[in-house]
Design a protein around this nucleic acid. Sequence first.
DNA 1: TGCCCTACCTACCAGTAGGTAGCCAGTTAG
DNA 2: CTAACTGGCTACCTACTGGTAGGTAGGGCA
Lengths: 206, 206
Amino acid sequence: MSDLTEEISSKSTRELILDEALHCFADRGYEGTSLNDIAAGVGIRRPSLLHHFPSKEALYTDVFEMLLSEWLEGLEVAMASPASGWDKAELVIRAGFDLFARTPDYVRIMRREALDSGVHVGVDLSGFLRPLFDNACAYFTAEMDAGHFRRHNAQHLIITGYGAILTYFSDAPFIDELFNDQALTPEHVRDHCDHVVAFFRAALVV
Amino acid sequence: MSDLTEEISSKSTRELILDEALHCFADRGYEGTSLNDIAAGVGIRRPSLLHHFPSKEALYTDVFEMLLSEWLEGLEVAMASPASGWDKAELVIRAGFDLFARTPDYVRIMRREALDSGVHVGVDLSGFLRPLFDNACAYFTAEMDAGHFRRHNAQHLIITGYGAILTYFSDAPFIDELFNDQALTPEHVRDHCDHVVAFFRAALVV
DNA sequence: TGCCCTACCTACCAGTAGGTAGCCAGTTAG
DNA sequence: CTAACTGGCTACCTACTGGTAGGTAGGGCA
C-alpha cells in the first residue's frame, strides 16, 4: 500500500511535468520554452524537474512519444475498421478530427516538428508514420482502381487531406482572428469536420 | 555617383542581413535564431548587424513586412483579375502556388507566426489578411448563390484551401521523408498544384 | 589639413539558459 | 533505531543571449 502510494505520488509529479511540458512546447515551441517555465507551471524548481527527467531533450522526447503513441493508436483503430468505400474514408476523417480536437496541443507540436525537420526529437518520425501513409495510399489506390473514387494521385491526395485537417487545429489562434470567433469550440469543430467530410466526398465519390 | 555607390553598398549589406534573417527565422524560428547566427551568415559581427537594425524584433518585423507585402501584392493581382467562375478560382490557386514555390521560406515564417499567435510581430496580421479573406468569402458565396459552385460554408472552405496549399510548402522537409523524394522540385510542385486544382474543381464545380 | 560620417570592430554588460553538487526533511526497510 | 532512499531545495557553474560602449579605418568634403 505504501509502495503504491509512493508510486502514485511519484508518477503524479512526473505526469504533471509531462502535461505542463506538453502545453508549453505546443504554445511556444522547443526553443521558446525554458525548463523554468515548465517547473514554475508545476510548482517546483528547475533542479527538481531535472530529478525526474535527465535533460530538456529527454523530456521533449517523452512528450513527443506520448503524442506519437496516441496518434498511432487512434488512427490505426479507425484504419483497421472493416468498413470500405467512402464510409471508411469518412470514418477515418472523423476519427482524426476527434483525436485532434481532444489534443490540439499535440497537433501544434507535430506542426512545429515538421517545420523544424525533427531536429529536437530522437525518434524516426517518418519511420513511425510511413506505415500509416503507405496504408492510406494503398487504400485510396484500390478504391480508385475499383472505380469507387475519382482518380487522384494518392500521395498528394493524402497530403492535401492532412493539411486541410491539421491546419484548422494548428492555426486555431490565427483562425480565431479571421473568424472573429473561437475556432475550437465543439460547435465550430463539428462544423469544420462536416465541411471537410462533405468537401472530400464531393471531390472523391464518383 | 559616389553618393550612389555608398547608397548601394549600404543597401547591399542591409539586404544581405534581411536575406540571411529570412532564411534563419524560417529554418529555426524566432527564438531558435540568434543574432550571432545571422551575423555569421552575413560575415559580420553582431554589433555591426545592430548598426543596421535597432533590435532583433525590429529586424524580424522588417522581414515579416517583406513577406506580407509580397503576399498581398501577388494575391491581390490574381484576385483582381476579371475572370469569373471556376477560371478565377483556378487562377488564384495557381498564383498562390507560384508565389509560395518562389518563397517557401515566407510560408514557413507565416506558419510559425500562426502557431505563435503573432507574438513576435508588431503588425496587425488579421487586419492585413482580413480584406483578402472577406473578399474570397464574398466571391465563393456569390458563385454558390449563382449555382456555379456546390454549396459549402465559405469560411471553412477557404481555411481548407489555405491549409491544403500551405502545408505542402511549410511541411516540405517532412513530406520529403514520406515521399522519399524532394517535395519542392519544380516537377513535384507542379504535380501538387495540378492535383489541388483538380481536387478543388471536382469538389466545387457542379 | 582637419572634420564628419559610415561601417565595422573588440570588449563588456546584465540576464538567462541548461545542468550539477550537495544539503535536508520525510518515509520506508531492516 | 538506524540506514537508505525519495524528492524536493539552494547555490553554483559554464555558455550564450540581446544589447551597449568605445574605438578605428577610411571615404567625402570644405
